[in-house]
Design a protein around this nucleic acid. Sequence first.
DNA 1: TTCAAGGTTTAAGGTAGTCTAAAAATCTCC
DNA 2: GGAGATTTTTAGACTACCTTAAACCTTGAA
Lengths: 240, 240
Amino acid sequence: MKHTSVVEDYLKAIWGLQQIERPVATSRIAERLDLTAAAVTAMIKRLADQKLVRHEPYRGVILTPAGELSALRIIRRHRVLELFLTETLGYEWDRVHDEAERLEHAASDELIERLARLLGEPERDPHGSLIPTAEGTVDREKLPALPDLPVDAPAAVVEVRVQSPDRLRYLGSLDLFPGAEVMVREQAPFGGPLSVEVNGAARVLARELAEQILVRPASRDEPSGDASPAEDAPGKAGAA
Amino acid sequence: MKHTSVVEDYLKAIWGLQQIERPVATSRIAERLDLTAAAVTAMIKRLADQKLVRHEPYRGVILTPAGELSALRIIRRHRVLELFLTETLGYEWDRVHDEAERLEHAASDELIERLARLLGEPERDPHGSLIPTAEGTVDREKLPALPDLPVDAPAAVVEVRVQSPDRLRYLGSLDLFPGAEVMVREQAPFGGPLSVEVNGAARVLARELAEQILVRPASRDEPSGDASPAEDAPGKAGAA
DNA sequence: TTCAAGGTTTAAGGTAGTCTAAAAATCTCC
DNA sequence: GGAGATTTTTAGACTACCTTAAACCTTGAA
């Protein structure tokens, strides 16, 4: 039940990669954790011994139910901490990841639950990602990305699936936080950029970035983006 | 400048022991960290290589200025975190130590400074211990302990030098938090217990514990214990 | 003044994690 | 259905810790 912080990092990485492809290749894990494939192979053995993953040599790994549960608990920690950092301490949304990355291994369950209480039992982190429950469950949601939206259809940003601080900072400068109201005005052909209205202001956005912005289309009869649980824009709280 | 968390633990332990005797014996460190003396000797070599301690074989170690600075920064982290846990998250004062012990190695300087700001740049932790500044300085203060007080002289509790959760819980049940107003009524001879008035209520306290309670005698002309910077009693915030 | 007790250091071995380099398996493509 | 490229695993070595057991100082008391 209690793992080293390195083991926690592996589980988290594997969980994330598993959302993309199952089973997960050794080299994917190595890339994500910035380690050699040899190190990953060695660790996978240990994880398999602890019944956290199942490993088919040369084929890849998948998390066991125990492994997945552990992963989700760590992800909960991470996301609660991120939200605490922005909401309570005024961190910018592009600077919370690394800090949370270290704290998540040191924080007790009790600390996390107290933080969650302080934050009002939040459902999403500052990037709009769903926070797993303390029991380790998350809803699988299937949201459209910005480029999937029909032209001129109003929607609200729900989640910004971007890690890189640079990109986050840039998106923040465009006001593209969870909760922002958006409308696609035009999509340039051949994978070109999108013209988007963000909270009423006209913006142009590279398609690559737009793909990472998940939205909830406004339902016809609602006045304006009120269907979204994410209500306020993080990352602009008290500047350092 | 950046050390492993094990190194940080050693520095903190040595700093604390150095307040009692200098140089610090290998076996004292081993006791405090619950390791074998052999492990300590090995680590001392590494610390000496990094110029964090000076070591005279068979005689003991003392921190170098660099080592002391590092130690004080870690102690600052620890104490700021402890205060955050009681003040903001409602932890009891007997349960903050272990949590802070883990977090102190993961928290960035920035996090600690933001917490300190949130807490109003506090001077003392929940036990009344002085928090070193961000620059790594602490005042050396020389306060009398409860048994040093003349009978019937009013004083205020400043610091409770107790680690053990059991004892802290017990002292808390007697209202002996920093800020409490106390008066020694009687001292039993031959190292016997003290009769003490705490916030007006009569208590009896083992001498061993009383020795660890540091107080500031009320100055004659003040109405009541207002000279103390520690103003409110921690540890009684929202019960779990 | 020696010598035993007790604390300290060395020596040897273990775990968790990393790396490089080489061997083995799988995939790709003609 | 191979040859060659690619990916994965093994092998051997390194760091930072820890342990136990033996060797080594220091000291204090007869």
